[in-house]
Simulated assay, not measured.
Amino acid sequence: MRIDIVSVFPEYFDVLNLSLFGKAQAKGLLEVATHNLRDWTHDVHHSVDDTPVGGGAGMVMKPEVWAECLDELLGPDELLGSQPSVLIFPNPSAPLFTQRDATELSRASHLLFGCGRYEGYDARIPEYYRAQGVDVREYSIGDYVLNGGEVATSVMLEAITRLIPDFMGNPESIVEESYTGEGALLEHRQYTKPAEWRGLRVPDVLLSGDHGKVDRFRRDEALARTDKIRPDLIETLDCTQLDKADRKTLMALGWEVSGPHPRRLQ
């Protein structure tokens, strides 16, 4: 996968040389390049923003600077539709970025991130590139506002790249994670040795050596945690895919499971 990141603070992404992300680049799984948006300016102050049309506080990033940058990084093949890339802008006003999005984007060959600053980027930028046939995505990572798109880009990159084959040392480690796969639930709690620490003991079933009981315990805890913290995820489960034990657990938690999806009993 090739990844290009445009920012007025490209040095922020030095962190991508660390840990698994850095190892993936060394192995050739990822090719990452950061770019300073100011390199595409032509004035003495390297200005990338201007006052909002219609008035208001703050500054808005200028479309002409972004266009020169994106035209060059996408290249004529992309703009002609023959070399598909995904152009991504973090935006607190956009749809929420999810594990499903991360899974889809992990299969892309080229991701280009545009990190906004100030009051954001001119709305015509994504509009223009969509009209040229570019796959443009705008995502929020949560119901809050950051100073710029760098943090959000880093979050999305972590979620996306760890799903690339051979990125993780043990691919099984992502199978039961929160939000993963169809019928996604929050992950069960994890423990390690010692079995007892400061008066707190690991649940006995995890020490039993009975893998069937351990799997059932973890599944039941995942259902219970999801019911408590994210009941909206329970509502998306397909009841036809639930086994007898799942149904029993959900009924005990106050869910009706006879329909296509679980429904909270009043």
Rank of each mutant, 00 (worst) to 15 (best):
M1N: 01
M1I: 02
R2Q: 12
I3P: 00
V6G: 00
V15F: 08
V15R: 07
F21N: 00
A24G: 02
Q25P: 02
A26M: 02
V32A: 03
V32D: 03
N36S: 07
D39K: 05
W40P: 06
H42E: 11
D43V: 09
H46K: 02
V48I: 11
V53S: 14
V53D: 15
M59I: 09
V60C: 14
P63M: 12
V65T: 06
E68I: 09
E68D: 09
L74D: 13
D77R: 04
E78T: 11
L80Y: 14
L80Q: 15
S82P: 06
P84K: 07
S85I: 12
S85E: 06
I88G: 05
L96Q: 08
L96W: 08
F97S: 01
Q99C: 07
E104P: 00
E104M: 12
S106R: 08
L112V: 05
L112A: 14
L112H: 13
G116M: 12
R117N: 05
R117V: 05
G120W: 04
D122K: 13
E127H: 15
Q132K: 14
Q132G: 10
E138A: 06
Y139T: 06
S140H: 09
S140C: 08
V145Y: 11
M156Y: 10
I160D: 02
T161R: 01
L163A: 14
P165V: 03
N170Q: 14
E176A: 02
E176V: 02
G181F: 10
P194S: 03
P194Y: 09
A195S: 09
W197S: 08
G199K: 04
L200Y: 11
V202R: 12
V205Q: 00
H211S: 08
V214G: 03
D215P: 08
R216W: 14
F217A: 02
R218D: 06
R219E: 09
T226D: 12
D227H: 09
K228D: 00
I229W: 01
P231W: 11
D243F: 06
D246K: 03
L250Q: 01
M251W: 13
M251R: 14
G254S: 06
G259Y: 00
